[in-house]
Write a protein that binds this DNA or RNA. Structure first.
Lengths: 334, 334
DNA sequence: TTGAAAGCGTTACCAG
DNA sequence: CTGGTAACGCTTTCAA
């Protein structure tokens, strides 16, 4: 049933070498022979085996994408952008959700290497440097997306520090003084940067943020965001504004506030990050810092393909600018 | 740099066959030899090439998933469930978004075959029967998820017809008489079934739904949902309730209603389908019909693996029950 | 038990 | 131009 290059060659009365040449458009064959062979291939519905081709050292035309969670809308959007550009350029995509777990990430990475992906895009923290280091020594080029790489590596990212600052400025303009910050797990560098950027801007204004005001949330983003926000809001000297490192956390905060009978933004302002589709749907719509996901995904793939085609590793960082999207979850402090 | 089975064999002073045996845990080797070989493999950080193994007729341990759009939260959730179960069972996953486009679907399908996936899960309409038919004649087993297959094929699905009925009953109980329905593109069988179920329940109650009350939306779900709902709501005899075939469409409807200054649910009730994460975030939270995505994804993978391990094709349909989740976007007609 | 050798489907090099 | 043939890395008989 399954046709091979031999079947085609036999049917066309030529050698497999000839067939191989027309498949790859290489070498010299008379136009007539080529035509004939093409015809036979179509007639037999022949499809070259990527597997066999890969075994001889050719590419697999497969890329890998590692994200924390594909069901998180932000990463789903990134994934879609990456997928589109990959397929556009002729590559298939393995998608893996790591839940930010070191073991999962390493397992997936090793799997991808065994399956000989041509390159990978990493959008998730990788626990230790040595993993990334050995990864980069491998044959497959790597680009890091939406995260700070721990080593010099090609990176497509937004200026998270600046994004945090954007949020801080917005809240500052609205006269907030008491704020609470919701961060992701410490491994998540983008989250750390956002917090750093926020705090630094806040300090510039001569204001302080107590360490107890910065809450680290676990992987159950909505859930943990809700409980941490709840603690902050119920505690002494409750914040009048909450900066959340992503929209999911912000949604948790929203829930906590509502549950406490607080009005948003009248009683407490909430600001998210990512500008996922969720942000425009919440009640009230969420003020958030936007990342250009489409563009990031596309750039990541382009860079990756360029690296693997040129064979040169490239450590350049592409830093895009975040943008504040003001909706109705933030207001002047009363 | 890259270790092969030969390197291991040489280093361990045995034949490659011996190494192969310990890799696959087959054949008989003295425990001592096995230990030695394992040690060498670890020392050399040897990783068997899935590619080479596949070439000899073994599995690729790769599955393919086709969905309309991975950035649609419903499919992102399905994908996550499928991914988890796949990886749990040792398989990697290609994920492809087809946008419900025939050409894209066929291109992806062909790619997957060239890459010799062990099986595929189809969650998107495939334009013509012949494609599906030839697909199913291939070596790789297929299971259809969240969609009616056009041919006898293993299917994991909810009872969409019944789901439509659930929505209708809910609206009927609330005394609605004038309704509007928002459907997806005609190719989408689940959507058709939901509409059929809704209409039939409606008719049972002695009520009618004019053909002009059923609007087909394009692929820009939110966008198109909004414009179609807008037309309905602005038209003569506007509906007091809208049934939307998925949450995204419902969100569009929500937007249209708000833009027209209508209150929800006081002026118009809106009911969605899928119960994605979006549904609990909208303002007001969306009443919707839930699908058990986690379970569906898991069942699909389990069935697929079972088929490919047993080598038997299986046409069984697994039909799960949808469930009405009542939130605040629907209310008794005033 | 262990090892030699024949594939698996392609590519690429090297003679005709 | 064209065809034969040795890799590629692994699995699987089949002898020894």
């Amino acid at each position: 049933m399954k046709m091979t290059i031999y079947d085609v060659a036999r049917e066309a009365g030529v050698s497999i070498a000839a067939v191989s040449q027309v498949i790859n458009g290489k070498g010299k064959i008379s136009e007539q022979r080529r035509q004939e062979i093409v015809q036979v291939m179509e007639r037999l519905n022949y499809q070259p085996s990527v597997i066999a081709s890969a075994l001889t050292g050719k590419k697999t035309f497969t890329l890998g994408l590692l994200v924390p969670d594909i069901s998180n809308p932000f990463f789903a959007e990134i994934a879609r952008a990456v997928e589109d550009q990959s397929h556009h350029l002729g590559y298939s995509l393995f998608i893996c959700s790591t839940d930010n777990k070191k073991e999962r990430a390493e397992r997936y990475l090793s799997l991808m290497q065994q399956k000989r992906v041509d390159g990978m895009i990493i959008g998730t923290g990788i626990a230790n440097k040595s993993t990334l280091a050995s990864l980069m020594k491998g044959r497959a080029p790597v680009v890091v997306i939406a995260r700070e790489a721990k080593l010099a590596a090609k990176t497509v990212i937004i200026d998270d520090y600046c994004g945090g600052g954007l949020a801080a400025s917005h809240l500052l303009e609205q006269n907030h003084v008491q704020v609470g910050l919701l961060s992701e797990n410490e491994e998540v560098s983008s989250s750390r940067e956002r917090i750093r950027g926020f705090v630094s801007k806040w300090n510039e204004a001569g204001l302080n943020i107590g360490a107890d005001r910065i809450r680290i949330c676990g992987d159950e983003l909505v859930q943990d965001g809700k409980s941490q926000a709840g603690e902050l809001l119920r505690g002494p000297n409750p914040p009048t504004a909450l900066f959340c490192c992503n929209d999911l956390l912000a949604i948790g905060a929203l829930k906590a506030a509502k549950e406490l009978g607080l009005r948003i933004p009248e009683d407490v302002s909430i600001i998210g990050f990512d500008n996922t589709i969720l942000a425009e749907l919440t009640d009230p719509p969420l003020t958030t810092v936007a990342q250009p996901t489409k563009q990031m995904g596309q750039l990541a793939v382009d860079s990756l393909i360029e690296m693997l085609e040129s064979g040169e590793k490239n450590d350049e960082r592409i830093v895009l600018q975040p943008e504040l999207v003001i909706r109705q979850s933030t207001a002047i402090k009363r």
